[in-house]
């Protein structure tokens, strides 16, 4: 069963009198629980596609369904509410809140967005901190962490609200190769544990190889879809 369904999805930006077609009518399906990647060079449309799946941007044509909901017509308020319950984000620059500790950064979506009770929050965060191997770093501020540690915290923050889809835009771009692999391993392990669909964008060939399904993009068009044999 597909958790993402795209049919003839287009995205056109207007800059003054000039129209720029970022996505030129793409069709794809991503099954639930996938570990998928959009790959391609800069400007190919990876981030735009990820933003539309994450309801940060709206398609200008076609239909895009996420978790069974057509997200194309969302108002900003509806989009925010949908993201709060359905989607988690991992950013290239980690984007942790610098004034909050590791624990508080992971707790943020549960307190400020989902308003979960304190007891439930404590249990959930303790389990996640164990999963990402940072139980002893819970009181540290982001400024006291390495890049890899920050991205592990970001993975935990993305997963804490039990989203159906986690979107990671170039999650390893600011990490060395070894750390990048550890982060990909962590994400895959989390996928296996929670059944969450992970979709990331990358142009790093080493990271591409880790994905089970890859969608290759070029100039806003989907040029090739590759699936690991076990997922065909």
């Amino acid at each position: 069963m597909s958790i993402i369904t795209a049919r003839a999805v287009k995205k056109t930006y207007v800059a003054g009198d000039v129209e720029v077609e970022a996505i030129r009518g793409v069709d794809f399906d991503i099954p639930a629980g996938s570990f998928a990647a959009f790959v391609g060079p800069s400007g190919s449309g990876k981030s735009t596609l990820l933003n539309m799946i994450g309801c940060l941007d709206r398609p200008t044509g076609g239909t895009l369904e996420v978790a069974g909901t057509d997200v194309g017509g969302f108002t900003p308020k509806q989009a925010a509410a949908f993201r709060a319950t359905t989607i988690g984000f991992i950013f290239q620059d980690f984007n942790l809140l610098p004034v909050l500790t590791v624990y508080e950064n992971i707790e943020y979506p549960l307190v400020m967005v989902q308003k979960r009770p304190a007891d439930e929050r404590r249990k959930r965060i303790a389990a996640l901190l164990e999963d990402i191997g940072m139980a002893d770093q819970a009181g540290k501020l982001p400024s006291q962490l390495s890049g890899g540690q920050k991205q592990r915290v970001a993975v935990a923050r993305a997963l804490v609200g039990s989203p159906q889809v986690v979107l990671a835009d170039e999650p390893t771009a600011n990490l060395d190769t070894a750390t990048a692999h550890r982060i990909i391993d962590l994400m895959r392990r989390m996928r296996d544990e929670f059944g969450t669909t992970f979709i990331f964008s990358t142009h790093d060939p080493k990271v591409m190889a880790e994905a089970e399904t890859t969608f290759e993009l070029e100039d806003g068009r989907l040029t090739r879809t590759t699936q690991e044999a076990s997922h065909v």
């Binding site: 709060a84 984000f89 400020m112 967005v113």
Partner: peptide
């Protein structure tokens, strides 16, 4: 930061 918390779903 505002973009981050908005993306996370902060109303």
């Amino acid at each position: 930061e505002i973009g981050t918390i908005a993306a996370i779903g902060t109303p």
